[in-house]
Nucleic acid binder design. Structure first.
Lengths: 145, 145
DNA sequence: CCGATTACCTACTAATCTGATCGGGAGTGC
DNA sequence: GCACTCCCGATCAGATTAGTAGGTAATCGG
């Protein structure tokens, strides 16, 4: 499985933006600092997310990025698919299917794609944030009980 | 997602061997020919499968590979995990978890791993063969009805 | 015993992908 | 006008992947 750094960084950035929503714009540089990510690399990722319609940007002083809509209206699967080129893509090649092993591979790939899509398409950014704060609570404030 | 060529070839080869089970040994060269795979590359993959305990080999004239046990006793997930280095591995890095975005990534990865494991650990080679012949039937022998 | 046959093993290479950096545009706000 | 910020293309080093080459060692048929 394994998400690429690009996807990982993009997810981290958009999670930050979701936490801050709805607020003013956040600059790429600040996002990079908060999550300790390479700033230039992150820039290109944010750009992709904007092109994907998840973010809005504002140029110039006081500019930056923010979510284009509420976290509850953003599906995590959509974000990830935008960031990875693969992830259910990669269905090139004509359908010959005469060699039996190829059928097996196709079938396994299909099952895998279905399973991952199901997981990722059933969670919004808002839900993701909820889960995170739940988990963070159970980890760090344990001794408060 | 996306399986590597190595994994794909290995799966194709073991599917062939499962079809032939229980029979005499099949040579790497013949397997490569049947599935149209680069022979030397396949050799190294078969070796890995043998080390993983899925295949038995016999050296010398009349030698080759065959499954080490019945297809119903071989889990597809086990095979794939042996072939890919990754696939739920890659949990390096100490648990800092202070940056919130990292938690999100960890959570998504976890969900993804669970989902793929569930799919792959619930199908044996035998079941995979059944599904294939079902699918092949509905595709090619349509006009037999 | 010999030679063919086949698995086994190591090392190497070519190409692709990934993660990043660089150096500027070009629009915006003061 | 000037600082600020997004925007965008080119480039690059290193890792990974896919595949090849070449030889060693076990085994079988004769």
């Amino acid at each position: 499985m394994r998400l690429s750094k690009r996807t990982e960084y993009g997810l981290r950035a958009i999670v930050q933006l979701a936490k801050l929503w709805p607020t003013e714009h956040v600059q790429a540089r600040d996002l990079a600092k908060q999550e300790e990510l390479p700033s230039k690399f992150l820039e290109s990722i944010l750009l992709a997310l904007r092109r994907g319609g998840f973010l809005e940007s504002k140029v110039g002083s006081g500019g930056g990025y923010r979510l284009s809509r509420a976290p509850r209206e953003i599906i995590v699967g959509d974000v990830l698919r935008r960031l990875e080129g693969r992830l259910s893509a990669r269905d090139t090649e004509a359908r010959r299917e005469f060699v039996p092993g190829e059928l097996a591979v196709r079938l396994v790939n299909q099952r895998l794609t279905e399973a991952t899509d199901k997981v990722l398409d059933n969670i919004t950014l808002e839900e993701l944030l909820d889960e995170i704060s739940k988990q963070a609570g159970s980890h760090q404030e344990m001794y408060y009980i």
